Amino acid sequence: MFSVALSEEKEPSVRVVLGHFIFVYIHPYMDGNGRTGRFLMNLMVAAGGYPWTVIPVERRQEYMVSLEEASSKQNIAPFAEFLAGLSNADSRAKRPRSFLQQANSRAPFNQHDQGLNY
């Protein structure tokens, strides 16, 4: 179900947010899920034509809280907003409108999202 949703999604920003969340939610490995998820997220970022996004270690708690909100309360908006905030803070990238800003403004990422059950 998720792989179909990701493969059919046209907007790279939405694929990035959902792809990272889905991988971390599945939690397929004993160790390294977060690192692998962030790496996969950046592969999707690069595939969309955007520069890589780094989650600073000093913002790890905020990152974890936003993922927990998506997982336990079926509300992915804080995670999308967190990633968009990272993208906005990176003014060195000189992108007109970041892919994460597009993801955050494009769809209502919450439990009411049509066709996706988190």
Rank of each mutant, 00 (worst) to 15 (best):
N33G: 04
F109S: 05
R59W: 07
S66E: 06
S66K: 01
E68N: 02
A70S: 15
F2K: 01
G34V: 07
I76T: 11
A89P: 00
V65D: 15
N117V: 08
Y29T: 02
G19L: 06
S87K: 00
A70Y: 11
E8W: 12
N75A: 08
G37H: 06
Y29I: 03
H27V: 12
A47T: 02
S71E: 11
K73A: 09
L40M: 07
R60L: 13
M1V: 05
G19C: 10
G32H: 07
R106E: 14
A93Y: 00
R38W: 04
R35H: 04
T36R: 05
R106H: 07
S3K: 03
L18Y: 12
A107N: 13
M44H: 04
P12G: 05
A93Q: 07
S13I: 09
E68C: 01
A70E: 10
R92F: 05
R35W: 06
A107S: 03
F79S: 08
N104P: 00
V54Y: 06
S3M: 07
N104A: 15
A80N: 02
N104W: 11
V24E: 15
M64T: 10
Y118I: 05
Y50S: 07
G49R: 01
H112W: 13
V24A: 09
V4I: 11
I22W: 14
S66Q: 02
R97Y: 08
K73Q: 09
F39A: 06
K94E: 14
I22V: 10
L86H: 04
V65C: 00
I55H: 09
V17K: 11
P96V: 05
L86A: 03
N33S: 02
R60E: 13
Q74W: 14
H20N: 10
F79H: 14
A70T: 11
I76Y: 07
K94M: 13
R38K: 04
A5G: 01
H27D: 07
P96L: 09
M44V: 11
L40C: 03
H20Y: 04
D90G: 00
R59C: 02
N42Y: 14
P56I: 10
R15S: 12
H112K: 09
H112P: 00
S105Y: 12
A107M: 09
F82M: 12
V24T: 11
M1P: 06
S72E: 15
F109C: 06
Y50C: 01
H20V: 04
R15F: 08
R59H: 13
M1G: 01
L116H: 01
M44E: 15
M1D: 06
D113N: 08
A103Q: 12
S105R: 14
N117F: 09
P96T: 10
T53N: 00
E58P: 00
R106M: 15
H20S: 09
S105C: 12
G85N: 08
N104M: 10
E11P: 02
N88G: 00
P108E: 15
F21W: 10
G34A: 04
Y50D: 07
K73V: 05
A46P: 00
Q102M: 11
A103D: 14
F99K: 00
V16W: 12
R60S: 10
L43E: 15
F23E: 03
